[in-house]
């Protein structure tokens, strides 16, 4: 520990290096358990084989073009989640009766397995991207709406009174004070909502065997290509992490100091 404390490079990168070391150790442990047959190699592939399978799923299975299909669905869902969720949260904040009537079950929806409703959307939209997008939007909406509502409700009264003392119109009050003050909370909602949407896009793709990455995982699993299946799953996890980090950076860039 004392070396870490002294060396400025180690001090700066210690959390990242520790995180990477934990993942590498985890992989090595699984590799060891599979190689010694403590873990069944027919169920859990060797991490080294999963790593090698990446090249195959990129070249043979066109994972990148499949990723673009999934990204287009997730992107459409993300835009809809923001376009519906933020106004919905604003509406709930502005109409107390509506808030009291719906807040609990909207919050409850965030914890519900929305994906189970897919047969209904299959009937409505057929086996199309819209079934996937509809479920993703439904899953992403609660956190965005609830955190928008929470952010707007938590705006400090002194800021609102300042706006009133400057005789702002309702429109000015919203855009110049309420919205920017609630932005950190809205961003948290968007970050969680978009991750929920992405999870559901891939999940529904998998269930209805339609779209980009979901059907690929399905096909690889049906072919019993375990290293390929796990490589595809790792790819999805990796994409989710990238989305989360990008959202976090975007928020910091938009709001340099809070």
């Amino acid at each position: 520990m004392s070396t870490v404390a002294r060396d400025p490079f180690l001090r700066r990168w210690a959390p990242e290096l520790t995180g990477a070391a934990v993942i590498i150790c985890g992989f090595l442990l699984i590799e060891l358990l599979v190689r010694t047959a403590i873990l069944n190699p027919y169920v859990v592939p060797r991490p080294s084989d999963v790593l090698l399978a990446f090249e195959r799923i990129v070249v043979e299975e066109q994972i990148l073009s499949r990723f673009l299909v999934t990204a287009a669905e997730a992107g459409t869902a993300a835009v809809l989640v923001a376009l519906i969720g933020i106004p919905l949260g604003t509406l709930l904040q502005g109409v107390p009766l509506l808030r009291k009537a719906t807040e609990t079950w909207i919050a409850g929806m965030a914890a519900a397995p929305i994906v189970l409703i897919y047969p209904l959307f299959l009937v409505i939209f057929g086996r199309s991207p819209w079934t996937i997008i509809a479920i993703a939007v439904l899953a992403g909406l609660p956190p965005v709406a609830m955190l928008t509502l929470e952010g707007l409700s938590a705006v400090r009264p002194a800021l609102v009174d300042t706006g009133r003392s400057f005789r702002l119109s309702r429109w000015q009050m919203f855009w110049k004070i309420m919205f920017p003050a609630a932005l950190p909370s809205i961003f948290s909602g968007l970050r969680i909502g978009l991750i929920f949407a992405l999870i559901n896009v891939v999940g529904v793709e998998f269930l209805i065997n339609f779209g980009g990455l979901g059907p690929l995982i399905n096909e690889l699993a049906e072919r019993y290509d375990m290293p390929g299946t796990y490589a595809a799953i790792c790819f999805v996890v990796f994409v989710s992490i990238i989305v989360f980090v990008v959202m976090e950076r975007l928020e910091k860039w938009l709001r340099p100091v809070r």
Binding site: R156, P157, A158, L159, D161, T162, R164, S165, F166, R167, I177, P180, A181, L183, R255, V257, R258
Partner: peptide, 19 residues
């Protein structure tokens, strides 16, 4: 009868806009 343009208010709590 409401906030007046001739009156400027300074509040007890921090009312600066953090953004």
């Amino acid at each position: 009868n409401g906030p007046h343009k001739s009156i400027g208010m300074v509040f007890q709590e921090d009312a600066t806009f953090p953004w």
